[in-house]
Computed example of a mutant assay.
Amino acid sequence: MRRILLSLILCVHSASMSAASGVFHTTAFEGGRSVSLSLTEGGPADDPAFDFDVVITLSEIDGGGAVLYRDEGRHGASVRCVSPATVRVNSAEYAVDISALPGTDWKHDLWATLCTAPAS
């Protein structure tokens, strides 16, 4: 039942992500350049200790909005929504400070995007 509920939440969330181009975190640098992290794929996690498996891409954008670089790599991550909130990339697990402000840390922003999405 949990997997079905998570699948439904992700489907609803994926539809809203598509409208927002999937960007979940952006870091600004001098000269107006920024780096954005986006979700391109996602679904229920294969590992029962996690809730979601996702694919992240990276883009560098200039001050005028033009894409300077788009990473063609497929960076997989797993996210656990419940305590202890965790993001796993490869075999490294990172604790998520759920009290962090949005934009402070990409792992928090990924967790928040997936785990605090409104469900109807």
Rank of each mutant, 00 (worst) to 15 (best):
V67Q: 14
S99T: 15
E72K: 12
G73K: 13
I61W: 14
L58S: 05
R80I: 03
S91H: 05
V89Q: 14
V79P: 13
F52D: 04
I56H: 01
A95P: 02
R70M: 07
D53E: 12
V79N: 12
L68P: 04
V87I: 11
L58H: 03
A85D: 03
N90Y: 02
R70A: 14
G73M: 12
S59Y: 04
E72F: 03
N90T: 04
D97H: 05
N90D: 11
I61N: 08
A66W: 11
G76I: 01
R88G: 00
L58M: 09
P84R: 12
S91R: 12
G76M: 11
A66M: 11
R70N: 09
N90M: 07
C81S: 03
T86E: 07
L58R: 14
V54K: 10
S83A: 15
A95Q: 05
D53Q: 10
N90C: 00
D97V: 03
A77Q: 09
D71K: 08
R80W: 05
A95T: 06
V89N: 00
S83H: 08
R88T: 00
Y69W: 07
A92P: 00
V89C: 06
Y69L: 12
I61L: 05
Y94S: 06
L58N: 02
E60P: 01
S91Y: 03
V54W: 06
A66F: 15
N90F: 04
I56E: 11
V79Y: 10
I98Y: 01
A100M: 06
R74F: 08
G73W: 11
A92I: 12
V82W: 09
A85T: 01
E60H: 07
H75Y: 15
S78P: 00
T57P: 01
L58Q: 10
V55I: 15
V96T: 07
I98W: 00
V67E: 15
V55D: 08
N90L: 09
I56S: 00
P84G: 03
A85L: 04
R80Q: 08
S99D: 11
D53F: 05
G76P: 00
D71G: 05
T57Q: 11
R74W: 05
D53R: 09
D71I: 03
A95M: 01
G73R: 15
S99H: 10
G64E: 15
R74C: 07
R80C: 05
I98V: 15
E93I: 02
S91N: 06
D71M: 06
S99F: 10
G73A: 15
D53T: 14
Y69P: 08
S78Y: 02
V89H: 01
T57S: 14
A66G: 08
G64H: 13
I98S: 03
